[in-house]
């Protein structure tokens, strides 16, 4: 018998809808609402030993206090597994489910999982920390959701290691795991290429990023000869010593440095701290990344009015889209306040 603790909100506990969203946290014995479906799917091998119930607003009004109470309840009942939700596409409920799972696994070492719709807010926030099973976007998908959660949950409770997300029926957590395969990589990639050439299906072993949301093109520069032009790069070029501590990968910081310093490239001299490419050619001549010599020549020729006195830099390897967008917004704001008309971006 697998002993399961189950977290649900006021709605699934049958207490009420939005009008009861401030229902305080409580612990009930046995299965409530979807917990009965969990027991049924378990076919007599699964018992819900306690149901943790909290209103969606009550949870978020005092997240810390609620999580502490949940931690205490779980420490006492010592279940083999915690199941939260499924939260489907709900914002508050999904986030609460994931937060409860995080507490169970990280603080108490209790295997835990939730079920959410792939585009639910909880996925963005908790995907790397919490095991999640994809569900439909509404409670109409309850039966499939419960079966999917239990399939993964029973394996977690048995102490089995996670496999590839797709094979397990999980939402990818974003980490890679080395495995030994029968076929070496060269043979696999040639097989893949042959399948592609024959028009047969194949599965890449590298997950490509989703294309970014399209941004409508900015209006063009009307008159280059009147334009102030700045250079922005993700190639990690910084003064030696990296005074602003820009990360070598997974950057969260950007900085700007005077192009006059870069032109002299002496006291300070410049180098790339980017961990994702061989920077020997850029270190030997930074113009190969930040083309200040060419830009100043074009300024002297009158092709542009002026090279903006700073270049802007971060490191573009392993950098999350969230940080990249935030840094882009911050840099854009600075460029606008400095009266820049056009930007050259260089990427390694």
């Amino acid at each position: 018998m697998v002993r399961v603790a189950h977290y649900i909100n006021q709605f699934f506990a049958g207490i009420g809808g939005e009008d009861k969203a401030d229902h305080p946290f409580e612990v009930r014995e046995g299965a409530v609402g979807p917990g009965r479906a969990v027991e049924m799917a378990g076919g007599g091998d699964v018992e819900i030993v306690q149901t943790l119930v909290c209103g969606d607003n009550a949870f978020h009004a005092d997240t810390e206090g609620t999580l502490a109470a949940i931690e205490a309840a779980l420490a006492e009942s010592k279940p083999d597994l915690l199941i939260a939700g499924p939260g489907f596409n709900a914002g508050r409920y999904g986030l609460a489910c994931a937060a409860v799972c995080a507490v169970a696994t990280e603080k108490l070492g209790i295997p835990a999982l939730t079920g959410v719709y792939v585009d639910a807010p909880a996925v963005d926030v908790y995907r790397s920390r919490v095991v999640m099973v994809p569900t439909g976007d509404s409670a109409a998908g309850m039966k499939d959701a419960v079966e999917g959660m239990l399939r993964v949950g029973l394996r977690l409770a048995a102490g089995e290691p996670l496999g590839p997300a797709e094979e397990d029926g999980r939402i990818p957590m974003g980490f890679r795991k080395a495995v030994v395969t029968e076929t070496p990589v060269a043979a696999r990639v040639v097989d893949m290429l042959m399948a592609k050439l024959r028009g047969e299906p194949f599965t890449s072993e590298v997950a490509l990023p989703e294309p970014a949301e399209a941004v409508p093109p900015a209006p063009p520069v009307a008159d280059l000869s009147g334009a102030v032009v700045a250079v922005v790069t993700d190639g990690g070029l910084v003064p030696v010593g990296n005074p602003d501590g820009i990360e070598s990968s997974s950057a969260t910081k950007w900085a700007r440095y005077p192009i006059d310093d870069l032109v002299r490239n002496d006291d300070p001299s410049f180098m790339s701290i980017h961990a994702g490419y061989d920077s020997q050619w850029v270190d030997a001549d930074p113009d190969r990344l930040v083309p200040i010599d060419a830009l100043l020549d074009l300024e002297a020729e009158g092709v542009i009015k002026e090279a903006h006195p700073y270049y802007y830099v971060t490191t573009g390897t392993g950098t999350t889209v969230t940080h990249a967008e935030r840094m882009g917004e911050e840099i854009a704001k600075q460029l606008i306040s400095d009266g820049v008309h056009a930007v050259l971006v260089t990427s390694t």
């Binding site: 990023p209 294309p211 093109p217 922005v232 840099i331 854009a332 460029l335 930007v343 260089t346």
Partner: peptide, 25 residues
């Protein structure tokens, strides 16, 4: 983000398909 803010940004890169996926115009 720079284009979004209204400044035209020309992206010089060897991996042009990556630049496109990343949202450059």
């Amino acid at each position: 983000m720079i284009e979004k803010a209204g400044i035209p940004a020309a992206h010089l890169a060897a991996m042009t398909s990556m630049a496109k996926i990343a949202g450059s115009n």
